[in-house]
Design a protein around this nucleic acid. Sequence first.
DNA 1: CTTGACATTGACGTCGGTGTCAACGTTTAC
DNA 2: GTAAACGTTGACACCGACGTCAATGTCAAG
Lengths: 122, 122
Amino acid sequence: MRIGELAERTGVSTRSLRYYEQHGLLRARRGSNGYRDYSEDDVRLVSEIRALLSIGFTLEDTRPFIDCLRRGHSSGGSCAESVEVYERKLNEIDEEIRVLLARRAEVAAQLAQSCPGCFVRG
Amino acid sequence: MRIGELAERTGVSTRSLRYYEQHGLLRARRGSNGYRDYSEDDVRLVSEIRALLSIGFTLEDTRPFIDCLRRGHSSGGSCAESVEVYERKLNEIDEEIRVLLARRAEVAAQLAQSCPGCFVRG
DNA sequence: CTTGACATTGACGTCGGTGTCAACGTTTAC
DNA sequence: GTAAACGTTGACACCGACGTCAATGTCAAG
């Protein structure tokens, strides 16, 4: 299939698909006219990328998952490298949450100080 | 004082000071040579800006606080507009935390699924 | 006078994932 | 045959808070 069809089936813009390819996550055969030619498997790859991006992964983070699928695994997360990324991500998220909680406390404290009457839930 | 001294006393780069001025947060008299001439009060303004930036405010968010100080208040947070910003910030932070918690749960779930043996604390 | 530290404005780079447009070639439908 | 729809690459725009460099002007010390 060509890029337009893949875009439609995955709900991803052609712009993004080319971007993913530019970063080595997608590969496409080229027809004699130079058009990209995708297989059914690529639908799966794109879905995997989007699923991961939607939970806050960067494009780079998705690479091990894509490689894992390419090696024939049924799940992108069932390779050691992917698991490492999962764990790294959990740590990153935990750290971000920690920062936000500290920030929240700081803001609440400043608010309480400059506006003693203002209640802050939480 | 000139920009270099203000930079040194506040620990803020000259680049940043000019940036703040460019965005209307700082104003400086100009000497006959065109050099910026800052007052003692400006040290306070810059400190206020940095304090707010450090807890995740955007530059724009700091504007009401600066205006508040300019109006003579001893605290940048003791004006109605500032309090509004505080409250808006708290809501924003809460929302971010919510998103991160959901994200964390999602990642943990995927990890558990693709790597049943992997324990996830939390 | 010269050197060096400091000042000025302006502009580009960073990071990430796209949107969007240009200028052009290909395929498809009528 | 022709127009519409689709494909190609390349490049600029965005957001935010600066870093950094360029080209040039100013001032204090030797």
